[in-house]
Amino acid sequence: MYQYCDLDDCCISLHDCFVEKMDFDNGILSFVFPDGFWIIKKHSQNKSNTTVRTNSSQVDFQIIDEEIDGIEIYVFKGNGKVKTIRENWEPINFITAINNGKFRIEFITQYKNYQSFLFKYWACFDKSPYHLECEIILHSNSVAYRWNKLRYDCIW
């Protein structure tokens, strides 16, 4: 389905990229990026001198033990003053809410460790509260970044 598959992110960035669909099947958590993700200029397929977006793309994480409990999702809610509460969201409910269009997510920051990925992102809504700060922790030992072509008209 995709022409290119990168197995590491040394030349890829998800920063400011939106996910509108997700799937968990056979131990693989998939994020679908309708507007693509970023390919930096040193990638072998990038023929420009700048970072460019791909077309519609997908990122697949192989979850350790292939169980959905290898996915942790937290949402931070506050009263606008001093108190912030971290809520745990069940992964299947989170995936269903995204696929039903209740919100989309915008990736902000990524941290990696041995068999673990931590992403900070915004859950973006069409009405108040408009966005919530969130985290997703993926217990994964492999990731695949899939895409078809670069959009040289869409630069960083």
Score class of each variant (00 low, 15 high):
Tyr2Lys: 03
Tyr4Cys: 10
Asp6Leu: 11
Asp8Tyr: 08
Asp9Val: 02
Ser13His: 05
Ser13Arg: 11
Asp16Gly: 00
Val19Asn: 05
Glu20Thr: 15
Lys21Asn: 12
Lys21Phe: 10
Phe24Leu: 04
Phe24Ile: 07
Ile28Phe: 12
Ile28Tyr: 13
Leu29His: 01
Leu29Ala: 01
Phe31Ser: 02
Phe31Met: 04
Val32Pro: 02
Phe33Trp: 07
Phe33Lys: 07
Phe33Leu: 14
Pro34Lys: 11
Asp35Ala: 09
Trp38Ile: 11
Trp38Glu: 01
Ile40Trp: 07
Lys41Gly: 00
His43Asp: 15
Gln45Met: 13
Lys47Asp: 15
Thr51Met: 04
Val52Arg: 00
Arg53Val: 03
Phe61Lys: 01
Ile64Asp: 15
Glu67Pro: 00
Ile68Tyr: 01
Ile68Met: 06
Ile68Glu: 06
Asp69Ala: 02
Asp69His: 09
Ile73Asp: 00
Asn79Lys: 00
Gly80Glu: 04
Val82Glu: 12
Thr84Asn: 10
Trp89Gly: 00
Pro91Val: 08
Pro91Arg: 06
Ala97Arg: 10
Gly101Phe: 03
Glu106Trp: 13
Ile108Ser: 12
Gln110Gly: 13
Lys112Arg: 14
Asn113Lys: 14
Gln115Ala: 13
Phe117Met: 03
Lys120Gln: 13
Trp122Val: 03
Cys124Lys: 13
Phe125Leu: 02
Glu135Val: 07
Ile136Met: 11
Ile137His: 13
Ile137Leu: 08
Ile137Ser: 10
Leu138Phe: 06
Tyr145Asn: 09
Trp147Asp: 08
Asn148Phe: 00
Lys149Asn: 11
Leu150Lys: 05
Arg151Asn: 12
Arg151Cys: 06
Cys154Glu: 15
Cys154Pro: 00
Ile155Leu: 05
